[in-house]
Simulated assay, not measured.
Amino acid sequence: MLHICMGLVVSSAATGCNSTGTVTRPVAPSLVSDEQALALPPPGGPAIVGVVERPRRNGVEQTISLATTARVPGQNYLRIEFFGPAVSRGQSAPFRAVHERAILREAAQAIPGVRLTRRSTFLQNSYGPFAYAAGHSGLGDTCIYAWQQIRAGTASDGIGRNFGMIQVHWRLCDFHAGEQQLLSAVYNYTITGTFDGKAWNPFGEPGRADSRIGETGHPIYPMAGAPAGSLSIGYAGGVELTPTASVMHRSAPVAVQRPLAKAEAKVREPGPRVPLPGNVTTRAGAENSASAPEQPTAQAPRVRVPSPRSISAPRP
């Protein structure tokens, strides 16, 4: 028994000597700057108000909070998840395949009180196909919940390429924007992050040039390759545009004449009228003209107004 106790003491002492005592911060969500966002909304909105990053052993997740003007409870966001090799500390995130029921439950939790309808139209942006559900709240908000999984197929040179995967989820509600305007954000956003190494490239190989280029008998027109031209209006960014918000014409203020007191009316006498430059009329001149009897312009005495140079000059 004594030998066992002595062994425990020795092992504890050895463990204490081997410990470095370095203070470390556990792997937890942290607030990062907007410049470190792994995805950016399109120019013009919605604006980024904060980025929360969750590091994982096999990737990273960011929730990019966006400006919200809707009356529905909740915050607009763009959540992006990178699934790849085990390169950092923390717990590994399990791969979750995209299932319709799970996505619709997730959308209902993200946008409470709004009945969303799954749109069945096939849509595709620069990163591949995506899907979304849309609805309207009782307060007049338009909401969409979109999702996309970016994963390249097997490369042409065999197995062992393109193992990385990215999942993107959008939650957008706006009081001033319509469904097409909200959808334009999903079409025009930019992913700024990727994996280090060709084996984990989730975007696949670059596309080849059009085979019609340079060939005779294959005309190429300006609008032939613009399928997204139906989205003529971009994201409004929560700014309400009204016809009355243009230039407002203000009318000139109307001069109100002050009635003269009786004593003041008796003392004042009509004096000579001094013409002023332009159409400027002083209040005293208006009062004098109102109280003085009308006289012909030809009979009014002319008063010589000295120039600024001769104000201090002696009289001749």
Rank of each mutant, 00 (worst) to 15 (best):
A37F: 05
N201D: 02
T117M: 14
S291V: 11
G16H: 06
P42A: 12
D174S: 12
D196C: 10
G138S: 12
N188Y: 02
A28W: 08
T281V: 13
G135F: 03
T282Q: 00
L276S: 14
S120A: 15
R79Q: 15
Q181V: 02
G278P: 00
I220R: 10
H136L: 14
S65M: 06
A199H: 03
G50C: 04
G237W: 02
G74W: 01
A265T: 07
R250T: 10
E53P: 05
R309T: 06
G140W: 08
A290L: 13
I311P: 02
A313I: 05
P222F: 04
A86E: 14
I111W: 01
L183A: 07
A252C: 11
P202Y: 03
A265D: 07
L66M: 04
A298L: 10
R258F: 07
D210N: 07
S310Y: 06
V87K: 06
G158L: 08
A108G: 08
P85C: 01
S312Y: 12
G238W: 01
P112Y: 07
L66Q: 04
S33Q: 13
Y187R: 00
S251Q: 15
R79V: 02
P85H: 03
G197W: 01
A67M: 07
S312D: 15
S19L: 14
E205S: 03
Q148D: 02
F175Q: 10
E240W: 07
P43M: 08
A177D: 05
A313M: 10
I159T: 11
I233Q: 11
R56V: 00
M248A: 13
R115V: 12
D174A: 06
Q91K: 12
T15R: 10
E294G: 03
I166Y: 04
E215I: 15
S310F: 08
A209M: 12
A261P: 04
V98Q: 09
E240L: 15
Y187A: 05
V49M: 05
E287V: 07
G217C: 00
A252I: 09
G197H: 04
V239H: 15
N58T: 01
S307D: 15
S126M: 11
R273E: 08
P306A: 08
R96T: 11
S30E: 15
S291T: 11
E264K: 04
C5V: 11
G140R: 08
R283W: 00
Q149M: 12
A284P: 03
A255W: 04
I159C: 00
G237R: 03
S92L: 05
Q62P: 02
Q299P: 01
A236S: 09
S307E: 14
V267A: 09
F130C: 02
G140K: 08
G158F: 07
H3D: 14
P272G: 09
R250G: 09
A224H: 12
L8W: 11
A224N: 11
P202C: 00
V87R: 01
G207I: 12
H218G: 07
Y127N: 02
H3L: 14
F203E: 05
M165Q: 05
A199E: 06
A300M: 13
A110H: 00
R57G: 01
F163H: 00
R273Y: 08
N76E: 06
E35R: 09
T20L: 15
G158V: 01
G160Q: 03
H99R: 13
T194N: 09
Q181T: 03
I103V: 13
L2P: 06
P219C: 09
S137H: 02
S120K: 12
F175I: 10
A110P: 02
L31I: 09
L231R: 07
V267Q: 07
N288H: 12
G207A: 13
